[in-house]
Structure formats: C-alpha cells, structure tokens
C-alpha cells in the first residue's frame, strides 16, 4: 500500500512523461530529492525518460513559480532591445502548482512576467509542507540521515536514534493556516480538489502581535530582525521579487545604506514586505530560505490580513481581479485619515 505522496509522485511522472512525449511541453519544472534529507531541489527535465527523476513529498517548499519566468525565457530566441517579439508560438513549459504557487503564477501573469498560454500547470492540492527546522527541533537538532514519510507521520533517523513524529505537528506555519490548498489555475490535476480549508484563528500569529503596546511591538520587530545579515535570501526566494535593480541595491536614489545598520535593516524588511502587499500568497519561501531563522513571514502575513480586511481581496485568487493596490473603490475605508477620525470622534 503506497502513501499519498508516493501515489502523487507516480501520477506526476506519468502525466509529465505524456506531456513531454507528446511534445506538448518542451520542459517540465518539478522537484527531485537532494543530497541532504528534507531538502528538495527544483528540477527541470526535458525528456520523457527523465520523468522518473521527479519526486513529490512534504519537503517541496521552494516555490516553483520563482523559476518559471527564467525557464520560459530560456526558450525564447535572443533579442536586442526594440526587436519585435518572435513570430509564431513559442515552446510551452509544464510546472507543478499547489494553491499558493498557482496564485503566484496568476500574479506573474497579471504582471506580465509569465505568458499563461505558454504554461501547462499540473495542479496538486497541497496537504501542507513540512518545516525542516521544526523537524530538527523535534529531534533536538541532532544530525538527520534519513526521513521516511508516512501519510500522517514521519520516521526520522540519524546516528544512534530513530524517531516517529506526527506530521501535522511539523507542518509549516503558513500551511497550517492556509485556507486555499487547491490550485486556482491548472490544466491537469493530480488527485482531487479539496476545497477551502476551514481554519480557526487564521491570523492568530498576527493578532498576538497587534495587541502588544507599540514599544513591545518595536522590541519584537527589532529583535526579530537583529540577526539579519542582509544576504537577501528571502528576497531571492520570492517569486514576486523580480526587479532588475532592487531598492536595496540602488544608489540613485539610495533608499537604504549598504552596510548593516539598524535603521537600514528595518527599512529593508518593511519595504520588502510592503512590496508584496496584495501580492504575497504566503508560500513561505522567504522564511524557508532564511539562513538566520528570521520569521519575516509574519510581516507579509500582516499585510495579507489587512488587504483582506480592508479590501476583501486575496492575492492571485482570480485572474480578472486587478491587484488591490492598482485599483480602488470610492468608499474604501478611511478611518485612518486623521481629518476623518477627528470627525468620527466628534460624532
């Protein structure tokens, strides 16, 4: 009896083999296991034979949308600036997508980074991915040499120990609070759609901070980012951070200093998160990528909560809805406007 992930893996291989063999796609973007347990690597395959290298498990945490634009571009003939776009259809590319990744792809399409017609999305409803750091914590940060995954538990082993861990206990925070596990765009589906998840206290983590006094919030924030080495791994892992010149690297104008300065680090994190406002799908790549264990996801989570509260919008849920910061309603909330709140208080 195979596990859910084994079944998904074999279905993926079958579908991808078919897509490549028929010539429907020129390449497929999926995962394969790396040399280190619990670290899955993105993998691009170009032949049906390679389909068997694809794997699926609970450690597929790097957002594949991040690799999609470059992969598509690799199939375009080289062009100089001002040259017209190539004539005729360009090769298509296949990609795996869960709920959040597919929503990133919607945004990439809306932001002209990805041509929907050139992407064949193979959708998978996410069961939630596992946080490697949680697993390591659960085994007391001992070396891990092998992890075997059952449907509801993980068997973790290392030198001189073997431990079975409840899977849900080590699922990433973003997945535990995710309500949209199903892909919103797909051309083929592996397994069934699960529908929206019912999550109580979806924004609990954010709310726990919101209730603090301003000085305590500052103390939380400044402590959280204190260890930041400004390596920008969080930015690099994000499928939405694709500016050719990031504001942190810009010298004209210089928004932040290049050295590690408290204020500059804070402004980096504030602006990085703000740039994701209305776009972030809480895929968790940033946090997964951080070598210092900074929990910066909560920053984008806060913006996600506010965008939902204020504008009833969630990023990438619908190809037709304009991004929330590129549109407006006449009666958008404005209690924060001082002249309005003074009026309100008087009333």
């Amino acid at each position: 009896m195979s596990t859910v992930n084994e079944k998904i893996t074999s279905e993926i291989r079958e579908k991808v083999r078919e897509l490549l063999a028929s010539g429907h796609v020129a390449a497929f973007l999926g995962y394969t296991s790396g040399s280190v347990p619990m670290v899955m690597q993105p993998l691009i395959i170009r032949t049906p034979e390679d389909a068997d290298r694809l794997e699926w498990n609970s450690f597929c945490v790097l957002n594949l949308a991040n690799y999609l634009p470059a992969l598509l571009k690799s199939f375009e003939p080289p062009r100089r600036p001002g040259d017209p776009p190539p004539e005729g259809p360009l090769p298509k590319v296949g990609v795996l997508a869960t709920g959040c990744w597919s929503r990133n792809m919607v945004i990439q399409v809306q932001e002209n980074q990805v041509d929907r017609d050139r992407v064949v999305v193979v959708g998978i409803s996410s069961r939630g991915m596992v946080d490697r750091k949680k697993v390591l914590a659960a085994v007391g940060h001992r070396d891990v040499t092998a992890v075997y995954e059952y449907d509801h538990s993980l068997k973790v082993s290392g030198p001189g120990y073997e431990r079975e861990i409840n899977r849900w206990d080590v699922v990433r925070d973003n997945c535990r609070t995710c309500v949209h596990p199903d892909p919103v765009i797909f051309d083929h589906m592996i397994g069934d759609l699960k529908g929206e998840r019912d999550v109580a206290d979806r924004f609990r983590q954010v709310e726990d901070i919101e209730v603090l006094a301003p000085e305590d919030r500052w103390s939380w924030f400044s402590t959280e980012i204190a260890s930041c080495i400004r390596c920008y791994a969080c930015r690099n892992a994000c499928p939405l951070c694709y500016c050719p010149t990031c504001f942190v690297d810009d010298s004209r104008p210089q928004w932040v200093g290049k050295s590690i300065d408290k204020a500059d680090t804070a402004i980096f994190h504030i602006l990085r998160a703000y740039h994701c406002a209305g776009r972030c799908t809480d895929c968790g790549s940033c946090e997964s990528a951080c070598p210092m264990g900074i929990k910066m996801r909560i920053l984008t989570r806060k913006l996600q909560k506010d965008v939902l509260e204020l504008y009833g919008a969630e990023a990438g849920m619908d190809m037709q809805s304009p991004p929330p910061l590129s549109t407006y309603k006449m009666d958008d909330p404005q209690d924060f406007i001082l002249t309005e709140s003074i009026k309100g208080e008087e009333k």
Binding site: N112, Q113, C243, P323, L325, S326
Partner: peptide, 14 residues
Amino acid sequence: NLQKCTGCAVCARV
C-alpha cells in the same frame, strides 16, 4: 528607466 522596468504594468493600471 528601461533598465529598471520589469513591465509589470502597475504604472499603466493606475
């Protein structure tokens, strides 16, 4: 500034 532009079209939308 074409070097910096990503073509995301926020500018056109607003």
